[in-house]
């Protein structure tokens, strides 16, 4: 089956500094894919580039297609048909994504008018249905409320309702729960899962939280310094990561049960994109670095049927660590 979205060789440069070095990623219909990595790894830029949301100074190369139609370099009209309608996006800070001086009704109805051509009473009824769907209590009365009258978790629910207004095939959720408290995060993740089931919507979940991604995604891509370094089914990645960086990320996470162990901190820091090390960008921090690592960039090569890793010396974890 042809993928819904297919990204290949996607590159982005700002002022001559390459920040994305060729991303290849397919999203199938209804699939949930997680992107994990630290700040500056290119998780968000990938999708901002694909949707033409980067500032004009960004140089974008490569291809991103939706149902076979090219998005990179497409003109505004084509992108307007895609953004919000076929592919919707929600962000970490929902409060700044809403207009503080307009009621929720105005903002929801605007989306419904733009993407579905609904006006007047039809739009109001649909807006009400969406608010109900995302679990805003007393939706009828709350429609005429302003963003500041809602709590952080409720505002994120409203953002999800707005994203659903266009009945998208793909939802990009960029750190959707990072700003929320733990118990509210659980609510929002539950809501996203329910919405996905109901509409058979694909989702890309961008997060720095491995636990969040592990529990909510089918497949996971680990990104480092503008490249995908490992791609695997979620359960397999967390049970048995192959790339030393993926292992490092998992080892750095304190366990909540069992014996306490010293955290495996990855030494050093993420490299500056203006001064990337030669060869594998992770080599200077890698515990298993070898001679060849500094010489060339390892390609993302398939290791098993549904896994790929970009490492010259992929490691298997010792059994006792993998079992944790």
């Amino acid at each position: 089956m042809a993928p819904l979205v297919s990204i290949s060789g996607l590159q982005v440069a700002f002022d001559g500094t390459q920040v994305l070095h060729g991303i290849d990623l397919d999203i199938a219909k209804g699939e949930a894919v997680g992107l994990v990595g630290e700040s500056g790894s290119g998780k968000s830029v990938t999708w901002l580039a694909a949707l033409g949301l980067l500032p004009a100074k960004a140089k974008v190369a490569g291809s991103a297609t939706l149902d076979g139609r090219e998005l990179i370099g497409a003109d505004g009209k084509v992108l307007d048909q895609v953004r919000g309608r076929r592919i919707a996006m929600i962000f970490q800070d929902p409060a700044s994504a809403l207009n503080p001086v307009l009621t929720i009704r105005r903002q929801l109805c605007e989306s419904l008018g733009l993407h579905r051509g609904l006006r007047g009473e039809a739009a109001r009824v649909e807006a009400l249905r969406l608010l109900d769907l995302v679990g805003i209590p007393d939706a009828n009365r709350r429609l005429s409320a302003y963003p500041h009258e809602f709590s952080g978790g409720q505002v994120q629910r409203i953002m999800i309702a707005m994203a659903l207004a266009g009945q998208p095939d793909l939802l990009i959720a960029d750190e959707p729960t990072t700003a929320l408290d733990a118990t509210i995060q659980a609510q929002i993740l539950d809501l996203l899962a329910a919405v996905r089931r109901e509409f058979n919507m694909a989702m890309v979940l961008i997060s720095h939280d491995l636990g969040v991604v592990a529990e909510n995604c089918d497949r996971v891509c680990v990104m480092y310094a503008g490249r995908i370094v490992e791609r695997a089914p979620a359960t397999r990645l967390f049970d048995d990561p192959w790339h030393p960086y993926a292992q490092g990320l998992i080892g750095a996470l304190p366990p909540l049960d069992g014996a306490r162990r010293r955290l495996q901190a990855i030494p050093g820091t993420v490299p500056d994109p203006r001064a990337l090390p030669s060869g594998c960008a992770f080599a200077p921090r890698c515990a298993h670095v070898g001679d060849g690592c500094h010489a060339r960039v390892p390609p993302l090569a398939p290791v098993e049927l549904d896994r790929a890793v970009a490492c010259l010396r992929p490691q298997r974890l010792p059994v006792e660590l993998a079992a944790e």
Binding site: T183, G211, A214, E215, L256
Partner: peptide, 22 residues
Amino acid sequence: LVSASPAPGRRSTGRIVLSGDP
């Protein structure tokens, strides 16, 4: 709180999701 703290490596079964706002 403990059940809302997601763990990589295993899918949660029966997570307690609190209703209501913070």
